[in-house]
Write a protein that binds this DNA or RNA. Sequence first.
DNA 1: CGACAGATTGACGCGCCTCAAGGTACGTGG
DNA 2: CCACGTACCTTGAGGCGCGTCAATCTGTCG
Lengths: 242, 242
Amino acid sequence: MTTVCAGSTLLVRKLSRLVALGTDDIAALSELEFQSEQVANHHYLVREGDRVNRCCLLIDGYAARNKLVRNGQRQIVAFHMPGDMLDLQHSLLNRADHNVQTTTAATVGWVDVEKLKGFALAHPKIAEAFARDALIDASIFREWVLNVGRRDAKTRVAHMLCEFVARREAIGISPADPMVLPFTQEQIGDATGLTSVHVNRMLRVLTTEGAFERLNGAYKIADWQKLKRLADFDPAYLHQAA
Amino acid sequence: MTTVCAGSTLLVRKLSRLVALGTDDIAALSELEFQSEQVANHHYLVREGDRVNRCCLLIDGYAARNKLVRNGQRQIVAFHMPGDMLDLQHSLLNRADHNVQTTTAATVGWVDVEKLKGFALAHPKIAEAFARDALIDASIFREWVLNVGRRDAKTRVAHMLCEFVARREAIGISPADPMVLPFTQEQIGDATGLTSVHVNRMLRVLTTEGAFERLNGAYKIADWQKLKRLADFDPAYLHQAA
DNA sequence: CGACAGATTGACGCGCCTCAAGGTACGTGG
DNA sequence: CCACGTACCTTGAGGCGCGTCAATCTGTCG
């Protein structure tokens, strides 16, 4: 549960997509020690109201951020995949304003926030990478406001799938590969402001229209161009190309 | 149009709410020169696709960020008020992924982005303030995803009004003061994912329920506690208390 | 085999949208 | 001073997209 692990490799790879790291930056990052932990599905990595003093790198598995309204309905506001740092978000704020929960079994690596801050102070390139990462997250949040506020159900679901596929591609997984979605239909509903029932119907429509296929538990993008078109998807907001 | 102005006072006041600035930080900020410009309502301060190399301080008036879907529908993803820095958001990214547009006539002050970056490098406290500001913006985006995704129309409109009032309070304007809303009902609709027609009806409902009053063009919060309750509003996400 | 999470499907209703017709306030030019 | 345009607000009637409720099915893990 608390073995030191090679999360730093993953982190270097991620930050390298954001800025051009110097060899000294990379050397420094390699020194970073992550306390590795295996957690079950639905495990809370951060809870609303927590004081955050350590930071979590998602090494394997998937996670989602969510907030609740008074009557208990849930809204997922972001999802995360291997390589994502989950709590830079909160490190400078007093208390977590939302929950972060795994959506599959997962492996995470913990680092002390103060240690990361020290790195940022000593290495401007690393600080810039952290800042860009936070700004890209913010850009994604804006797209989600648009998605939930102004697109119809079919487009919304398709858009969320497109973002998932595009971000997977950035970490090296081809859109054409079959995939097991790390979300239930209810979670897709929580992310798109719909009910699981309606998500189910929209997935059926997207399937009959030939945008993607379903084989027992797994899904496969049947026509990536068509799905993007149906989704009104423009990846510019992901700021992936450096 | 390009007179140097005292925007730095406003900026010092804003950053002081985010971190404890040292006297040297304040002295340095006072040196900052803003090119002041008066702009009309509906003026674009940033356009989607722009390369951003200068940064805009909103000195007087109001502005909103918006994105468009393919069929031309608009979604406002954030609004801004005097004292807000509008483009720290974009300064580290290649291209603007959304528009920023005034919603009233306004006065803004421009600074060079590189100059600001220099400040951040030389003054860790200022860098931290910028970072916290960006993280708070992100927190507000998350709340908007929740608002648009999971609350009904009346609650949504009330919530947006609450955020407006709470943020005004942070810059020194009492919730009890009558106010002329710097948004049209159509803009409130664009911010909440509703049509202007339905916003109109919801405002009527909130009025008949006694949450607020309307006197000719101006509005007044009649019952701040009641409005917050109707809105499911918890200001924690604004991270205003340091 | 039983228990349980998740997917699927149908019937029905409501919240919000659409379309359309004024109304009001204000600025602008004759 | 009035005529007119423009931007915004207001109100009503009707319709549709998505939610609600509920039953059934499937796969998986003990």
